[in-house]
């Protein structure tokens, strides 16, 4: 028996993303952001996207290209303070932004990836983050109902992948990637290194390829992946 080969070409796999798609995007700051996949999405120009990401990157990087192109209808994030373009688009009303507490965003995605409907949490209760949310009582305590997040597409950055889509991550480039890699109908991975089957020891695999649909090897790391000198 042999595990299937899901390695593919960048253009084709991004071309399968339709207008209006909800897209999970890995990364916390630069580490773990799938810049190669995002740049191809910016080049192809799909519109009306709903993006889910921890942050909005910085001006001129990552999802900022999509925001500047007007490809993003709505952004679900925890924080966008490092991207003045995103703040301006939000303040002018051109970009709808939904803020979510960081760990609750992670758990909503994890719930989506685990086939659950929602999570219950007291995080944000009695703050404006609770506005409009359903409240239930559980074990005598008031809890917010936070719906699971499951998307059409996930764009994932991995340090190492094999052709089946088994993944390993580097340092703080992990962040939302292993969670998002479980929570979309079409999971697309860019990897800095594509190794043959068996090149990742079973114990080293952090995301099983059973969750992954497509693997693209990054030909050359662009400048965006590098050190940001502020």
């Amino acid at each position: 028996m042999k595990l299937p080969d899901k390695s593919t070409e960048l253009h084709d796999v991004i071309a399968a993303i339709p207008n209006g798609a909800t897209v999970l995007v890995g990364g916390f700051g630069v580490p773990g952001t799938p810049f190669t996949l995002l740049n191809e999405l910016a080049r192809q120009g799909q519109r009306d996207l709903v993006l889910v990401k921890n942050d909005a990157n910085e001006a001129g990087m990552g999802i900022d290209h999509l925001i500047k192109n007007g490809q993003v209808r709505k952004l679900i994030v925890t924080h966008l303070g490092l991207n003045a373009n995103a703040i301006a688009a939000m303040n002018s009303g051109d970009l709808e932004v939904e803020f979510c507490a960081q760990g609750i965003l992670a758990e909503r995605i994890r719930a989506g990836g685990a086939g659950l409907g929602a999570i219950l949490t007291d995080i944000g209760i009695e703050t404006e983050l609770a506005n409009g949310k359903q409240v239930v009582e559980m074990n005598g305590r008031a809890m917010l109902v936070e719906p699971a997040l499951r998307a059409d597409v996930a764009l994932i950055h991995a340090a190492i992948a094999d052709p089946f889509g088994n993944l390993a991550y580097a340092a703080t480039a992990r962040n939302f990637n292993p969670l998002m890699a479980m929570a979309a109908a079409r999971v697309i991975v860019e990897a800095e290194a594509l190794v043959p089957l068996g090149g990742l020891a079973p114990d080293a695999v952090e995301t099983t390829g059973a969750f992954v649909d497509h693997v693209v090897e990054i030909k050359e790391l662009s400048q965006e992946y590098g050190i940001v000198r502020r």
Binding site: P31, G103, L105, I109, A171, T172, N175, P178, L179, V228
Partner: peptide
Amino acid sequence: NLIDAGGAYVSTIPGSAFFDSA
């Protein structure tokens, strides 16, 4: 690939561990 939550480049020490956001 190694920053803190404020975006500063940091290092590990003996015994450091990495994990996902959840």
